[in-house]
């Protein structure tokens, strides 16, 4: 068994897929895994693959052409997932995709296809929930700042949506876990960036005291609930506790 390994970035994963495919070792004799590897097995040989944007680009174009543009969007979403098996799941789907073309997307009887769909659905759902539950805090200079701690890397999956929605606002969405941020200047395009410790600290200051809207919102949130129908379990099911971390109305 040969194990192809790479770091957790789209380019590296796509390159890894390219090299694994190209190795002609037989699909049954290989596995694809993300680094860091926590334990290695005795009878496997490991090959580390570095990102190569040319090979990555080729894989993207083949997926778009041989399967469909929609399949590429799914692969991208899956690549943003927090599931450590994602690379292997994507690869196993692509075997069907390249063999059958777009009809592979109908072959849900196949466990490999079903697993890929499931991963896509989960990542898509998580991204969707952040569109809903992201909260901005107003910073001096009319800048809206949001902190999130998602499991998946949802920044590039949510930022385009906020660009459309708040085109004439300055806003920043910060992924606290990865220390990355999507930055959107008023009337401009958003871009991704890594934050230095200093920037991060500055943007983590507590909310302004003179901003009345968080309290107004909390009041609304309390009064809109109907006592006779109270159902905290149901509320927890829809809005799990771990997602409430940066959500204004659940702040103490």
């Amino acid at each position: 068994m040969t194990v192809f390994t790479c770091e957790d970035s789209p380019d590296a994963m796509l390159t890894c897929i390219y090299d694994a495919w190209d190795s002609r070792l037989g699909h049954r004799n290989i596995r694809l895994m993300l680094e860091p590897l926590y334990e290695t097995e005795l009878f496997c040989s490991y090959r580390h693959i570095d990102a190569d944007s040319e090979k990555a680009g080729k894989v993207v174009r083949s997926i778009q052409k041989k399967i469909s543009p929609g399949a590429w969007r799914m692969v991208y979403r899956c690549a943003m997932s927090s599931n450590p098996e994602k690379l292997e799941i994507i690869y196993r789907f692509l075997l069907y995709g390249f063999a059958y073309g777009s009809p592979a997307l109908q072959m849900l009887q196949e466990p490999a296809v079903a697993a890929f769909f499931e991963l896509d659905r989960r990542t898509g759902n998580e991204a969707h929930r952040f569109m809903e539950f992201i909260r901005f805090v107003s910073f001096p200079g009319d800048v809206l700042v949001s902190h999130i701690s998602p499991k998946s890397d949802v920044l590039t999956l949510t930022a385009p949506y906020f660009s459309d929605r708040l085109p004439s606002e300055h806003w920043i969405i910060i992924d606290d876990t990865r220390r990355t941020a999507a930055v959107h200047p008023r009337d401009g395009e958003f871009y991704l960036t890594r934050l230095s410790q200093e920037e991060f600290d500055r943007l983590s200051a507590p909310a302004r005291e003179d901003d009345p809207y968080p309290d107004l919102w909390k009041g609304f949130f309390r009064y809109i609930s109907i006592k006779a129908r109270e159902n905290k379990r149901c509320q927890r099911g829809f809005l799990p506790l771990w997602m409430r971390k940066h959500v204004t109305e659940f702040e103490p």
């Binding site: 569109m131 809903e132 539950f133 660009s163 459309d164 929605r165 708040l166 085109p167 004439s168 606002e169 009337d187 949130f221 809109i224 609930s225 109907i226 006592k227 129908r229 109270e230 159902n231 905290k232 379990r233 149901c234 509320q235 099911g237 829809f238 809005l239 959500v247 109305e249």
Partner: peptide
């Protein structure tokens, strides 16, 4: 779609922003 100079857009699938204590979507 949103447009420059305006605030907001609308998605046909709808968006839920929170859930009140009675479990209803806000």
């Amino acid at each position: 779609r949103g447009k420059k100079g305006s605030l907001g857009n609308s998605l046909s699938a709808g968006i839920c922003h929170s859930f009140s204590a009675d479990g209803r979507c806000i």
